[in-house]
Amino acid sequence: MGAYHHGERIAQERAGLLDNADFSSAAIGAAIPGIAREFLAEQPVIVIGGTDANGDVWASQLTGEPGFISAGGPTSLDIAAMPAPGDPLHEALSHPTHLGMLAMEPTTRRRMRMNGTAQPTAGGLHITLDQVYANCPKYIQKREPTKRPAMPAAPRHSRELSTEQTTFLTGADTFFIATTDQDGNADASHRGGNPGFLQPLSPTRLRWPDYVGNAMFNTLGNIQVNPHAGLLVPDWATGTLLQLTGTATVDWDPHHAEAIPGAQRIVEFTIHHIVQTDHASPLTWSTPQYSRFNPPPPRPIEGATA
């Protein structure tokens, strides 16, 4: 299978980018480069993705003082933090499980993806890595962080988006998506665009365009073999986190994609469960400088309801 699993190869072939994917595969390794260790040590937040006991996939984040993420060796990582009680991944990470991770620095638009098996420790997590690679800075909005004391509210659960949540998602410029392959190997990735690129279609359905990327198709390849996915949408101004789990499908019809600026494909997401935690993060972020790579957002959908 090489660097890619069956679902990724299907997605690469459907997109007509097998040769591009083979070229990109050279970037995938199992060891953390020295310069990347320094990068990780500077980060105050890391996005994670995994599966709960019910088989639902969730994306979440861990925060700490710079240095809370450290490379214990070339193929291992230590994170001095755990998801808080009430987080959908709190229980899952109390025992060994496969974890997808994304360290992203909005200030410099740098990001790094890592996947591996996480073991709980007294101080957090120890991860034995099986995949490490950098991603390009496309579609990352530049922001500066500020830390302030946070008093997280109790998580609020629902099955449908409220009017307030729908409005929030319509204005989002960034979200993170967690997926897994057929064997449960998790991945966490980033999606960005101008406000409006993430479109609520109804209280239980979302849609977004899939823009030009690195041709690896890790996320869409996972969806090919396992439709379960989780989204994390941060409120950068308040530290509130909106977590959604559900199922995703990819619309490969080029005629449908033509209607959305910059879209190569369209992804639709059906919501099964929502968790909102107000003021969950101690980090707030400045007003964004939007990426110059962001295509114009799609036109609002007539008839879409909250």
Rank of each mutant, 00 (worst) to 15 (best):
A80M: 03
A92C: 04
H98S: 14
G86S: 05
P106N: 08
A71I: 08
P96Q: 03
P74A: 03
A84W: 02
L99I: 00
A103C: 07
A81C: 14
M101T: 10
P88R: 02
D78S: 12
A81G: 14
P85T: 09
P83N: 04
G86T: 06
L99V: 03
A71T: 07
P88I: 00
T75F: 09
I69M: 12
D78F: 01
H98Y: 15
E105A: 14
L102Y: 12
H95M: 13
P85E: 15
I69H: 05
L102Q: 10
E91V: 12
G73Y: 07
I79T: 12
A80F: 10
M101G: 04
A84T: 03
D87W: 01
A71P: 00
H98M: 12
S76V: 04
D78R: 15
G100T: 13
P74V: 11
A71N: 00
H90S: 12
A92D: 10
P85Q: 13
A103N: 07
T75W: 08
G72A: 08
M82L: 13
P85G: 02
E105C: 00
A80D: 09
A103M: 10
P106R: 05
P88C: 02
A71C: 03
G86Q: 00
L99F: 05
P74R: 02
A84H: 01
T97L: 07
H90G: 04
T75D: 15
M104E: 07
E91I: 02
M82Y: 06
D87L: 09
P74W: 10
D87G: 08
E91P: 03
L93E: 13
H95C: 02
A92S: 15
G72S: 09
P96K: 05
L77E: 06
L99H: 07
H90N: 11
T97Q: 15
P83F: 07
S94K: 14
H90C: 02
I79Q: 11
G86P: 02
G86E: 06
T97C: 07
T97D: 13
L99S: 06
T107Q: 13
G100M: 12
P85M: 00
D78P: 02
L99K: 10
T97E: 14
H95T: 15
H95P: 00
S94E: 11
H90E: 12
A71K: 10
A84Q: 11
P85D: 15
E105P: 00
H90V: 02
M104F: 06
M104Y: 04
G72T: 06
L77V: 08
P106D: 01
M82S: 07
M104A: 01
D78M: 10
L77T: 06
